[in-house]
Write a protein that binds this DNA or RNA. Structure first.
Length: 557
RNA sequence: GCGCCCGUAGCUCAGCGGAGAGAGCACUGGUCUUCGGAACCAGGGGUCGGGGGUUCGAAUCCCUCCGGGCGCGCCA
């Protein structure tokens, strides 16, 4: 990475300045080195301004001392003091041009730092109750989690993707009761529909199918037995629907972990006992409570209900014991909807109570998605409310566009998903522009191949136009963007980067011809184009968006 | 009432302690003897919700108020 190299260079200059007695030995862990926003400067350091007070000298004087001690470097064209005390670095044109061969030879991902080498990590995401289809809101969590997983893998984490299946408890039972009610109705028996039952059309359809396939089988057993059996049936059908929706978005999991299996193994009861022995459990009002928090903010949450059934919280504590104590993950990232945020404090408290290291657990909460159709929230729209369903949305606008929009916003921000914009204006969609840039470069390379041009011996030092150097700079940002996004768990940097890279190529394309009568220049530019295509493909790959070699224009309908 | 998130261009959103505040879309005006015009270039448009504070420096940190969303012990 370029920043790492400049950082090393800057540290060398600082050391030399110290040895020469021009700078006192003060703490300089943070160099304040970042991409410069100023035109004509690539990177800048704010260090002189940060340490001015401690050093007791003017920022500019400190900057001068450091720059004065800096050695020559082939990578840098200039190192200068600017403004109130910045140190600005400008990359050398010749060095930039050389980087193209490096990208072609090793690939754009080569310079991505291995931040997570050897760290056993799990990312859990989606984990929606298996009681129905995924909504658009779930789709955001799914796309976000999937791209985050790709990012973590890209920086070297030993990663497992997991879906926690809540196949236990009231919700699942309600699903079984809902199916049972419709099923009985099909066969002329009147079984009241449960309060808060699942009203979706799919429940009726499943009941019909069960009635057609199994006849009166479930009426011949007790209602409890029937509901249990139909709960299992409903979970299986729900999971099939969920998997199908996720498949359409090219999202897969390494492991589907059953909540019920924790109960079967006795893990839930066991963890309650452990909490009890450590004094975190109280009995009151016929229920068993998890007591936590400091003395001023005592909190209590139910682990075992009056009915004797355990709660979701009890399962989830056992689940996290399983993650950390049994499976020994070094790091766990849970991606979930923001409506679960109250849950995070309880889980951290449970981690503390069980002597598990809470710093190993990170929650990422995705805010809600509001679907807009015809300029109105979907619930007020005259058109079908089915746009709240993920499958419907993907059918309408496709996996690539769905993924792009879902990950292009920070998780913290609520999101408005305008279906008409994503679909009707698809010609102007950023995602199309990026994919088109890839297809266009492919087309150029095909043309070169047809013309029999072998550019493997191209001399990249001929690349000296501002747009060419700008493109190379943009490609060198790739590892920086990837590592920053992985570190901060913020995939939304990727779509923004991809768009700027594609735009940079399109601009270049309109100013300079890749294939021209000048064979040497053509070869050099073909190398550049190839490197750009590789980089665009790499970002698209991280986002799980297809990188087509050609695109057929669709007729407007 | 308490807790978490968000108020930045007409719209959707980046930027989250540094040097004239950005992108996409929309709008206005241009560019083509087209290596794929699903393109490119230029322009207009902003008291960064209001008010205090911290700092050499605040859209960014702290406090407060206003507005919106989500949540708040026997659902998961």
């Amino acid at each position: 990475m370029v920043t790492a190299r400049i950082e090393a260079y800057l540290r060398g200059a600082i050391d030399d300045a110290r040895k020469a007695g021009k700078l006192p030995a003060i703490e300089t862990a943070n160099l304040g080195l970042e991409k410069s926003r100023l035109e004509g400067s690539d990177y800048s350091s704010t260090l002189p301004m940060r340490i001015a007070r401690a050093v007791g000298a003017a920022p500019r004087a400190i900057a001068e001392a450091i720059v004065g001690s800096a050695s020559d470097s082939l990578m840098l064209a200039s190192v200068e003091v600017a403004g109130p005390g910045f140190i600005n670095f400008v990359l050398a044109d010749s060095w930039l041009a050389e980087q193209v061969d490096g990208i072609l030879q090793h690939g754009p991902a080569h310079a991505v730092p291995r931040l997570g080498e050897g760290v056993r990590t799990q990312i859990e995401f989606v984990s929606i109750n298996p009681t129905g289809p995924l909504t658009v809101g779930h789709g955001r969590i799914a796309a976000f989690g999937d791209v985050l997983a790709r990012l973590l893998k890209a920086v070297g984490y030993d990663l497992q993707r997991e879906y926690y299946v809540n196949d236990y408890g009231n919700q699942v039972k309600l699903l079984g009761q809902s199916i049972y009610s419709h099923y009985a109705g099909q066969l002329g028996e009147d079984v009241p529909f449960p309060l808060n039952g699942y009203k979706g059309k799919y429940v009726e359809e499943w009941a019909q199918e069960v009635a057609a396939q199994a006849g009166r089988k479930y009426l011949d057993m007790t209602e409890d037995e029937a509901v249990d059996a139909l709960s299992i049936e409903g979970v299986a059908r729900s999971l099939a629907m969920i998997r199908a929706d996720l498949d359409e978005l090219q999202i897969g999991f390494d492991n589907w972990f059953s909540e019920n299996s924790l109960h079967q193994a006795g893990d839930v009861r066991r963890v309650i006992e452990v909490l009890h022995e450590s004094g975190y459990v109280t009995e009151r009002e016929g229920a068993t409570w998890f007591s936590h928090g400091d003395s001023s903010h005592e909190r209590e949450n139910v682990l075992v209900k009056r009915t004797g059934e355990t709660t979701y919280l009890a399962s989830d504590i056992a689940y996290h014991v399983n993650k950390f104590a049994e499976r020994k993950f070094d790091r766990v990232v849970n991606v979930m909807g923001a409506d679960h945020h109250g849950h995070t404090a309880r889980m951290y408290a449970a981690m503390d109570a069980l002597d598990l290291d809470r710093s190993k657990l990170t929650f990422v909460l995705c805010q809600m998605v509001h679907v807009v159709v015809d300029g109105l929230p979907v619930k007020q729209s005259k058109r079908s409310g089915d746009f709240e369903l993920l499958g419907q949305l993907v059918d309408e606008i496709g996996s690539d566009a769905t993924r792009y929009f879902m990950i292009s916003r920070a998780a913290d921000s609520q999101m408005e998903f305008d279906v008409d914009l994503a679909k009707k204006k698809s010609d102007e969609n950023p995602v199309h522009k990026i994919r088109y840039a890839h297809a266009r470069i492919s087309s150029i390379l095909r043309r070169a191949e047809k013309a029999g041009i072998d550019f493997s011996d191209g001399d990249t030092s001929l690349l000296d136009r501002p747009q060419e150097l700008g493109l190379i700079r943009a490609m060198l940002d790739y590892p920086e963007v990837v590592s920053a996004a992985a570190k901060s768990l913020e995939p939304h940097a990727l779509p923004h980067y991809a768009l700027s890279l594609a735009s940079a190529f399109n601009s270049y394309y309109h100013v300079h011809r890749v294939i021209s009568p000048d064979l040497q220049l053509t070869k050099a530019r073909l190398k550049l184009a190839m490197a750009v295509r590789m980089t665009v493909a790499a970002v698209l790959g991280l986002m799980g968006i297809s990188a087509p070699d050609e695109m057929v224009r669709e007729e407007a309908d």
